[in-house]
Design a binder for these strands. Structure first.
Lengths: 194, 194
DNA sequence: CGGATCGTTGATCAACTTCAACGGTCGTGG
DNA sequence: CCACGACCGTTGAAGTTGATCAACGATCCG
């Protein structure tokens, strides 16, 4: 069986063929268009999503009405409002698609049952969340350490191809700056290297 | 058996008496003084720590030489540089004690063996990391959403007793502002409510 | 062709930092 | 027990970073 999620799980734990087929059958495959909302801030958060193609984003609405992007999820990443998901509570974030995407989704009861039936996955999800937790620590570090200009140069050198894929206003939103200021940074960056 | 860690684990999974005793025996109990370093940025990160008494902090050194605190861990919280711990790699954070504290520590091999011997704990750690991951998402949200002044008023109203326990320069470091500016904020806050 | 959306530019403004200096407090050694 | 020094919190002036607002050009899409 070849499936992006199974491949990903197998990087962490072993899974035989029949179990793999069972696992996959528990997920709902969604092919979604750009800008499709998978979660709306204020609604109950019921699903975790695994991205097999495309890109999702996590964002919230600031007081001034603009969207603030806090995470992108590319292929092989899990995304949800994890607090709200765990507590079966109301989401403080929205999720939508940055590009046409394919995701595998599972709700809380489905996940609970899956973990009861296939206990090796406890380990898989433990490792996934541990990794995400570590990534969040480094993320917070960058937010404290770097000026917005440094965040920009750091981000485009780390993920040049990804920056080509997304519109500039989304990059500005992720960096936490206004599109105007991003423009200014880019102009300065163009002048320097000459 | 009564032990803070066992009590905490039992909030998430069931554990019989003999297993509990076994679990506890895998951990090293450390009673440490204020300012004791449990992890040094640049050293290999070998342990995860569970706080049973007191308070730990996670921080790193900024270019200008000042310490930037990114997390506090009170009773019943786990703390480590989770990326470095998982990868058996070099830490990008330091950890020390804010107060005289007691922690239960375990290294990577010890944890691996513990999880192999007591598989219920996979679920416990999955839930712990999921919760921490959700907390990190909200943390990032606050960093983007609030001005430093709002962060201050939000934090002291949320954790008034904790703010009494720590010196002001640590609070400033956690909020990501200079002690001077924190002083100014406090002065303004004093004038307003009269 | 027409309208919305996106990126850019420049001027003004608010948030926060840096630096230098001073007073209070606490712990330590004489 | 006192005195000294280190450290902490505060104040004020000047400087930086990044936001806001208004306006304009370009591009994309119907």
């Amino acid at each position: 069986m070849t499936n992006p999620l199974i491949d990903h799980i197998r990087k962490f734990v072993t899974l035989d063929e029949t179990t793999s087929a069972d696992v996959i059958s528990r997920f709902k495959l969604q092919k979604i268009r750009k800008k499709t909302r998978l979660l709306e801030e204020g609604d109950r958060c019921r699903h975790m999503h695994f991205v097999t193609k495309g890109c999702l984003r996590l964002f919230f609405l600031k007081q001034n009405g603009t969207q603030q992007t806090t995470q992108f999820a590319l292929e092989n990443w899990w995304l949800s409002d994890f607090n709200a998901f765990a507590a079966h509570g109301v989401a403080s974030f929205s999720v939508d698609a940055v590009e046409p995407s394919e995701v595998l989704s599972i709700d809380a009861q489905g996940l609970e049952k899956l973990l009861a039936d296939v206990p090796q996955l406890e380990k898989y999800f433990r490792l996934i969340h541990q990794k995400a937790n570590g990534a969040a620590q480094r993320r917070v570090r960058f937010l404290y350490e770097l000026s917005r200009e440094e965040m920009y140069t750091n981000f485009i050198t780390s993920y040049p191809e990804f920056c080509q894929r997304i519109p500039q206003y989304l990059l500005a939103s992720f960096l936490g700056i206004t599109p105007e200021y991003l423009s200014e940074i880019r102009r300065k960056a163009l002048l320097k290297p000459v």
